[in-house]
Design a protein around this nucleic acid. Structure first.
Lengths: 136, 136
DNA sequence: GATAACTTGTTAGCCGGCTAATATACGATA
DNA sequence: TATCGTATATTAGCCGGCTAACAAGTTATC
């Protein structure tokens, strides 16, 4: 059930974001970079709660699309910083527009109270499953 | 948020099911076959709400693991029926045991009322997103 | 009966998730 | 200084989702 909602949501997001030429996962990285440009990969991964190979793969897509650049950290040759290109920065507004559109659909379908409840319950469930083998 | 819960759940399921040598998605197909053996691929896909290429890929895994067999329908040469092998049938009990274990964790963490509420809200959300481009 | 439309399954290829293994680089410590 | 441990990124490869394109069988319709 849970996974069906997620799949439905991702499909919806995918359709919605294809209007600006993005894939569903890429927008979340861009959101992070719009908030704070030049973050390290490992920090982006932590923010999105994914593993480093996953963030790496997603970034390859963004680099390929010319929305983002990689640069070595000056004082640490292990890490790389991720920077928005002009193309990446200029996507901010259209993407946010699309995002609000999606959001409005959700807002229209659920009351404020329902959103609060579901958020709380989902948090509870997340900890339930995540807590089984790993402390969050 | 939603996707994090799903990911957490799938990871949990994956760990849990590796005890009987299965992957997270395979159990759902097996559940269907234990209920009713010999279903067509397209019906299994509909039951699990996935596309035909997806069910096809998942079945290849099950065939490879020797848990399931394919057979042509006698009266329709397009369709194939999926049958449990002995190995597949004999997995029923251990898998159900594992499943109940997982279920108990969820039961322990959420009250009956909470489960009802979240189910209802998730259904609502699913229809929200699914309904955007396609009637269910 | 021939052709068109629909159904079912398969192949190819992409995205987003993971683990395991590897290469480097940095840091701490003997 | 040499070494050992830790942090970061990458590669390879798997699972579960999708779309697009295709092959092949069935059904309907002319």
């Amino acid at each position: 059930m849970l996974s069906r909602v997620t799949t439905a949501f991702r499909n919806s997001l995918e359709r919605n974001m294809s209007a600006v030429g993005l894939h569903s996962g890429q927008v979340f990285i861009l959101f992070e970079l719009w908030k704070k440009d030049g973050q390290r990969q490992v920090d982006l991964a932590a923010r999105l709660a994914v593993t480093t190979p996953t963030i790496n793969k997603m970034l390859l897509g963004l680099i390929d699309a010319g929305l983002v650049d990689r640069m070595k950290l000056e004082n640490d040759n292990r890490a790389t910083r991720i920077f928005l290109t002009e193309a990446g920065a200029s996507l901010k507004e259209p993407v946010e527009t699309q995002w609000h559109e999606l959001e409005e659909n959700t807002v229209a379908g659920l009351t404020e109270a329902e959103r609060l409840i579901i958020f709380e319950l989902l948090t509870k469930m997340k900890n339930l499953y995540a807590g089984e083998s790993d402390e969050d």
